[in-house]
Write a protein that binds this DNA or RNA. Structure first.
Length: 279
DNA sequence: ACCTGACCTCGTCT
DNA sequence: AAGACGAGGTCAG
């Protein structure tokens, strides 16, 4: 067991990976699929769920050392050394990022809360009421009208189709985990509503693909600001082809833990601009 | 293959 | 107070 004491729960929760978390009296309560996780000041590393969720199986010292070869990443890691990438419930992660497109964190959070409330199972823990994340079957069978009531807008049909794909087995998360990064991403991109960015989020945050690097507006801004020489960013919006070329360069530069680098750079830059997180 | 708009909804800001 | 603006993209033409 290594370094569990170094994990900073607040920084980790507030790094744009998860949305269904709330803090009461210095304890965090969060929905992860069909489980409610409770985090006190100190993590219970003996809990299998906690171990899994915080990726204690990763050799964080090694990752940190490798990424610190890059001076910008090094600085970001030093600012937030306790932040970790989480291993989320795949279905929840999948729907979360489909719903995130062209949106902001408070909106994403509201949508997911409404989806859970409407389609998830109610559970009471420590006298508090929670709603588990809906099961694929439940969302797949929900009507478009009812899903739309959760404020999804044009993303409604994305969610419906995506849930159906999982329910029918067209998308199978344990298979995706076994595939290599490229194949898994190609399969995810077949789903209506999933482009490369969203696919990368799902792969990085729930399917153990640490070389996935979601290239969103923020990351592009960061690359433009700190890496203009290395990566030659032209525009704010990028084409499919540019996305792949950039991604290749980034993995060449940072190595197989590039996804972690992205997360630190993202957190660092977002906090610098005091963007809103959850809780 | 690349470029350009449109797109739902909800905060903020004016 | 009502209208504009933009937010962690994706799809269609």
């Amino acid at each position: 067991m290594k370094d569990n004491f170094e994990v900073n729960i607040d920084d980790t929760i507030n790094s744009g990976q998860v949305f269904l978390w709330k803090k009461f009296n210095s304890k965090w309560y969060g929905v992860n699929g069909e489980k409610i996780l409770i985090l006190g000041d100190k993590l219970n590393v003996k809990s299998k769920d906690i171990h899994n969720f915080f990726r204690f199986d990763d050799d964080f010292q090694k990752i940190k050392k490798q990424l610190s070869k890059d001076s910008v990443a090094k600085k970001a890691i030093n600012n937030f050394p306790g932040m970790r990438i989480l291993r989320q419930d795949p279905f929840q992660c999948y729907i979360s990022f489909i719903v995130s497109s062209n949106s902001n964190i408070p909106n994403i959070q509201t949508r997911l809360q409404k989806l859970s409330q409407k389609f998830g199972e109610k559970k009471t823990i420590e006298g508090k009421e929670f709603f588990l994340f809906p099961k694929p079957e439940k969302l797949a069978n929900a009507s478009i009208t009812n899903i739309a009531k959760c404020g999804l807008g044009y993303r409604t049909k994305y969610v419906k189709k995506a849930a159906v794909a999982v329910n029918e087995g067209t998308i199978n998360f344990s298979s995706l985990k076994k595939q290599d990064y490229q194949d898994a991403r190609d399969d995810l991109c077949q789903v209506f509503g999933i482009g490369k960015k969203v696919a990368d989020c799902i792969l990085l945050f729930s399917l153990d693909k640490l070389e996935a690097v979601p290239l969103d507006r923020w990351v592009l801004r960061i690359l433009e600001k700190y890496y203009s020489k290395e990566f030659q960013i032209r525009t704010k919006s990028i084409t499919e082809k540019t996305y792949d070329e950039l991604h290749d360069k980034i993995v060449d530069h940072f190595g197989k833990y590039a996804g972690y680098a992205q997360q630190f750079l993202f957190k660092n830059e977002r906090d610098a601009f005091e963007k809103k997180w959850i809780g």
